[in-house]
């Protein structure tokens, strides 16, 4: 039984003017001990999808899914109490802004101990011992001295370590890290990523790393899902995704990285991410895709298996027949309907 199974998960935010599809039919399967990266630009729904797994989508967001299970338990049917028992214990999450994720009015020692007392039913003394142990595990020097520190007295990196300590306090089976290093300095970022990976290895927990940084996933994860406008566009092993991306969006993103430049101009993706008011009917990337056809603009592709991974594209880059099919589909409609290629 997989650890986490998501099938056709959608999150919509109804609004008086136009509904916002934050997550649109996301399916994912995660085994025990997996490390999965979810990359996407802002507004791609990568964070909201995981908040939905945690049951943290705020009103008025509506969550629907064909299947959303953790160790076979249906997450959509949990009572509030069951859900509280599960999240924070078996599934934990850390966020981008460590300093605001911690309550500024309480010491970090108190906040950590509370988690243990609540979920592990420890007494104060045991909780305190375990807190010191945890702080030590996440690489906080002289943890005894830090117990009485308030979040504002620690740096962003230290606070993120505290958040990680809190997340792993109950030995979760799955840790979701939402942009855990984005707010941190580069050298601290490397420390935190290393810490997350070593904790994952030592404890055999599964890790979902949400990030907008292609470099971060390339360095840390085994498998990547690329999200765009609420949908997964491509999912495969990190190595093959970076080696030979199959989705035009993935390829364009990789080419747009300054790291990929040879000194000349950078490849760019024309246009902007669709918003609530201009959501395309067909493939969501079609308006910005160099290979879009009238067929792609009209008919939304399904996420389907492709070369040891999954892809949501009519014309994957590795498909030997794609040139002919694109040409044929473009001929099928007057050329006026073809998108501009910038």
């Amino acid at each position: 039984m997989p650890l986490l199974e998501i099938e056709n998960l959608s999150v919509t935010f109804p609004s008086q003017t136009s509904d916002l599809y934050a997550v649109d039919g996301v399916s994912l399967t995660l085994e025990r001990g997996d490390v999965l990266g979810i990359v996407g630009e802002s507004g791609s729904g990568k964070s909201v999808a995981m908040l939905a797994v945690m049951g943290l989508v705020a009103f008025p967001g509506q969550v629907t899914a064909d299947r959303l299970t953790f160790e076979g338990r249906d997450l959509l049917r949990l009572s509030d109490n069951e859900r509280r028992a599960l999240t924070g214990k078996d599934v934990a999450m850390i966020f981008q802004e460590p300093t605001t994720s911690l309550n500024p009015s309480f010491t970090i020692g108190y906040q950590l101990a509370e988690t243990l007392i609540l979920h592990e039913k420890m007494d104060r003394k045991a909780a305190r011992r375990r807190t010191i142990e945890l702080l030590d595990q996440v690489g906080i020097p002289a943890p005894e001295g830090r117990l009485d520190a308030y979040p504002h007295q620690l740096s962003g990196g230290m606070n993120q370590r505290v958040m990680i300590a809190m997340a792993i306090a109950c030995n979760p089976k799955l840790l979701i890290a939402d942009e855990p290093t984005t707010a941190l300095d580069v050298t601290i970022q490397a420390q935190i990523l290393d810490l997350l990976l070593s904790l994952q290895r030592d404890r055999g927990m599964a890790l979902i790393l949400i990030t907008h940084n292609m470099g971060v996933v390339a360095d840390t994860t085994a498998r990547v899902a690329v999200m765009y406008a609420g949908q997964i566009m491509e999912e495969r092993s990190t190595e093959s995704l970076f080696g030979s991306p199959q989705h035009p969006y993935t390829a364009a993103l990789l080419a747009a990285r300054p790291e990929a430049s040879d000194g000349g101009r950078l490849a760019t993706i024309p246009g902007v991410v669709p918003g609530a008011y201009d959501r395309p009917r067909g493939c969501l990337f079609a308006p910005r895709c160099a290979y879009a056809t009238p067929h792609a603009a009209e008919c939304r592709p399904e996420l389907r298996p492709w070369q040891n991974g999954l892809i949501r594209c009519h014309y994957p880059l590795g498909d030997t027949t794609r040139d002919e099919r694109i040409a044929a589909d473009r001929r099928a409609a007057p050329p006026a309907a073809a998108p501009e290629v910038a």
């Binding site: 990196g157 050298t187 601290i188 490397a190 990523l193 940084n213 470099g215 360095d219 790291e259």
Partner: peptide
Amino acid sequence: PGMGKNRKRIIAKGEL
């Protein structure tokens, strides 16, 4: 990230 692949991974100790 993304530039450290072929290098020896040096991680600075401690905080700024």
